[in-house]
């Protein structure tokens, strides 16, 4: 047997990357504090550097692809929509012509207001996507359990994620077999809406029926026994430095609030 793999459980899980090895709770504190600071500032001059900072951290953590797969999509939609909506919404009153795109006059004030709002959303989104892209859910749940959360909640979270993967696979299979059995899955919207039920139905009833066995199987694994659990896979608890980092992040967030009020 691979003793290196087995030995890895004997010490705290580590990757050697500073950001990745931060305790999930520390990471969560930092990311949440910055996410809220974006909402508080509502200013592109703060938002753009924050968004870029998220990208840089993701890059340094070696998770840029995972991060940007999600973040890129959000950015595109938000930038496009909000820019256009603002140009439509704010074009009267005291406005300065900015650029003209094929006869469509854009105004500076609405453009800036748009970018304030864009970075408000993207600063918030970037910080949280960064958190999830660099923190496995099981690590987060482990940390919450260390803080006293029940293992049932961990189970709900982790089992949901696995169920989504499993049922997604199954739904593609069922849809294909529906097609081969002659149930129309193309055509007008009503036809397609009707195809929804025979696809979802068997999938869902099967899944519901399996919960009974799942409950029995998990009970055999002592899932419901009231006892203090041990953990095979452990993470290092947050050091004093890390705790200080968390507090600093929230102090910074509070400072943005004060700044916003004074201004």
């Amino acid at each position: 047997m691979d003793s290196e793999f087995i030995n890895s459980f004997r010490s705290y899980q580590k990757t050697g990357n500073f950001w990745l090895d931060l305790n999930p709770i520390t990471k969560l504190n930092i990311c949440l504090a910055f996410a809220f600071s974006a909402l508080i500032m509502l200013d592109w001059r703060y938002g753009i550097p924050l968004c870029l900072a998220c990208c840089v951290v993701a890059l340094l953590a070696g998770k840029f692809k995972v991060f940007f797969d999600m973040y890129g999509k959000v950015c595109m939609i938000v930038i496009l929509f909000v820019t256009i909506v603002r140009q439509i919404g704010m074009r009267t009153g005291n406005v300065t012509p900015f650029i003209n795109i094929f006869g469509w006059q854009w105004y500076l004030e609405s453009f800036v207001a748009g970018w304030d709002r864009i970075t408000f959303i993207l600063g918030f989104s970037g910080s949280l996507i960064l958190f999830f892209a660099t923190t496995p859910m099981r690590d987060l749940m482990y940390s919450f359990e260390q803080l006293g959360m029940s293992h049932e909640n961990s189970f709900i979270m982790l089992a949901s994620m696995q169920n989504i993967i499993d049922l997604k696979k199954a739904s593609v299979t069922i849809l294909e077999s529906q097609k081969s059995r002659g149930i129309e899955t193309d055509g007008n919207i009503l036809v397609r809406a009707k195809a929804f039920f025979p696809t979802l139905g068997p999938l869902l009833l099967g899944a519901i029926a399996s919960t009974e066995e799942k409950a029995i199987a998990m009970d055999a694994r002592a899932f419901s026994v009231k006892r203090k659990h041990t953990f095979l896979r452990e993470l290092a608890p947050a050091s004093t430095t890390q705790k200080t980092l968390s507090i600093a992040a929230w102090v910074f967030c509070a400072a943005t609030l004060v700044f916003r009020f004074i201004r």
Partner: peptide
């Protein structure tokens, strides 16, 4: 049983959306 039904409910929320997407609804 409710405890074990919850993750299924959550997955179903996602799958509903997924099937809607596959059927282009």
């Amino acid at each position: 049983l409710s405890l074990f039904l919850i993750p299924i409910g959550i997955a179903v929320n996602f799958i509903g959306g997924q099937i809607a997407l596959l059927l282009k609804l």
